[in-house]
Nucleic acid binder design. Structure first.
Lengths: 336, 336
DNA sequence: CTGAAAGCGCTTACAG
DNA sequence: CTGAAAGCGCTTACAG
């Protein structure tokens, strides 16, 4: 069964395709088309189950009404809720979102970006990885609507929205210091991306200000070997350095860290206090509950969409800034 | 900066658009185009950063090379990893996947389905909700490639892939019975979809076979009131009926249930044993670990893609069946 | 008030 | 070996 086209309907009612197109697009009165013809066309379209071919519409109008969203990993809870909120927000403006995961692999990221370009998306929402600089610059040069999220490239002038990483880590560190912890470790990943640098710098800064702790204690976990090896790295680090508190720089590090802490047999917070960046069902349900810096995911998504919509000329509200940092929420639980 | 088209390149090198098209599509030798021209075209395309307009290609060829995936909720870990595996598998066959969440809302589901149709996806992978019957039938009538996942409509003849729900619940119930539990409750949702019915029926069946337990003990949680109210329903049910074991029918019910159990102050498994359908980071990390029936997510995704590819005529391997049930993995932890 | 025509950017049978 | 032409299904300025 072939799908019915505009032309089919035109033939059926004995009008021209253009007239049918006007009617179906709600321009009947504007084009002073008779109500009789209008109703006939509408009825026929409905009866025949007409669905416009969006591919043709897109080619003709130059607009796909699709936004391309690239996140690091859609199966990570932070990115999943980011994607979900963005999808819902975009719908409000009549846009559909297609999303994919870069898996933090720049080759994959670049390929996906090109694919989005070839599919003619109207705008881009990207959490870039190292290595995507050139392709991002290309989008900027083409003056395509673009908002980076969670991170950005300091050397490239684009809109972006992220959590205030420095402020969040500062808040967490102050909490630990005030509670009297004197040997606070920071566990992060070996990444060149700005958001991880910001977090680590804030830790370094906090230590340099501390009267009690003189030495940084940083582990950069290498993920190349997979999950088990990552846990081993954390275990070894904790055993060797014996900190009294640990700050995990991302939610997945925190999850691995909890496994590691359990394997060693340390009890939280007596042997070791724990703070983690990003909230998560696991941290809430864990016994004891884990103290976290929760990212304002919904606000990040909403802000990103608003900035993008402004670039697309779809927004009434004029935003002042297109480079935004939003404060994290400090949630104190029993782990500290 | 406008994007460069085939025609631009043709003009640039002084050849016709058709020749350029053949070269760019790797048909140069087949069309006996001179190596000189070929290299010139390739070099020019590269230099000018040519990217084919897939919208135009799709309109012309009638193929988008896009699959539409509709899951219940992408921020649920089960569906997130399903989506991820499907995306990866589809890539192997040269297809891109666009996905969305129905949120178990049939109106939304139907709208999304139409949107996929209008976008001319080449095939559909759907976890349907109640109320999508008509639109699913429409797809079947149009003979569009379609595979349902996780559930299906008994009255509509489509391909589908799901876990063996009955077998999984049976396995879990036998485990509980063998461990000596005599008052086993089943907590599920108030859903008309087949997969939930299958799970509940298997519970009923197990109870009817049991020598020790005569009466079913079933709670159907109503989600309309949101998360907190759902927890309240579980709390009240557990307090009132005081079972010695509870079987949660989905992962999100299990998570809510753990909160509820904690709120009541019951200890697992002494006061109450727990088994849950679907595995999850939380169940693995929970103290005590939660015994689960893990769905073979990757196998489900792979099987679904293979069936779809067969329908699309892309597969070498001939599958015998297009309605598949796959066994769950029983993972015993400390909660039972 | 309504229709014929051009064109979006491609691919591919057809002609030479 | 290469080019001119048709056509995918729409939208929209133009003509009457």
């Amino acid at each position: 069964m072939k799908r019915v086209s505009l032309k089919d309907i035109a033939k059926m009612v004995g009008a021209s395709p253009s007239t049918v197109s006007f009617i179906l697009n709600g321009k009947a009165s504007q084009m002073r088309i008779s109500d009789e013809l209008k109703n006939k066309v509408l009825a026929t379209a409905k009866k025949m189950g007409y669905q416009p071919n969006q591919v043709a519409v897109s080619l003709r109008t130059g607009q796909t009404k699709i936004l391309g969203l690239l996140v690091e990993d859609i199966s990570n809870s932070f990115f999943a809720s980011l994607a979900k909120t963005i999808e819902l927000e975009a719908e409000e403006f009549g846009y559909k979102v297609v999303y994919s995961s870069t898996e933090n692999n720049s080759k994959r990221g670049v390929e996906l970006l090109r694919m989005l370009t070839q599919r003619q998306v109207d705008g881009y929402l990207i959490t870039p990885t190292v290595g995507m600089e050139e392709d991002i610059e290309m989008i900027v040069r083409h003056k395509k609507p673009l908002v980076l999220m969670d991170r950005y490239f300091p050397g490239i002038d684009t809109a972006f929205v992220q959590v205030d990483n420095a402020g969040a880590v500062k808040k967490g560190m102050e909490h630990l210091v005030n509670k009297g912890y004197k040997k606070i470790a920071f566990i992060t990943i070996d990444s060149g991306m700005i958001q991880m640098k910001q977090r680590e710098e804030a830790y370094t800064e906090a230590i340099s200000r501390s009267a009690e702790q003189k030495k940084k204690l940083v582990l950069k976990v290498n993920f190349a070997g997979g999950r088990e090896l990552a846990i081993d790295q954390i275990t070894e680090f904790l055993k060797k350095n014996n900190p009294d508190a640990v700050f995990f720089a991302t939610n997945y590090l925190g999850i691995l860290g909890l496994e590691s802490i359990r394997a060693i047999g340390l009890s939280i917070p007596t042997d070791l206090a724990v703070v983690c960046f990003d909230d998560n069902d696991i941290f809430r349900l864990h016994l004891p509950g884990i103290t976290v810096l929760q990212q304002p995911v919904e606000a990040i998504a909403r802000t990103a969409i608003h900035i993008l919509m402004q670039q697309l000329g779809n927004n009434k509200i004029a935003l002042k800034k297109n480079q935004v940092q939003l404060a994290a929420n400090f949630i104190s639980r029993e782990s500290t």
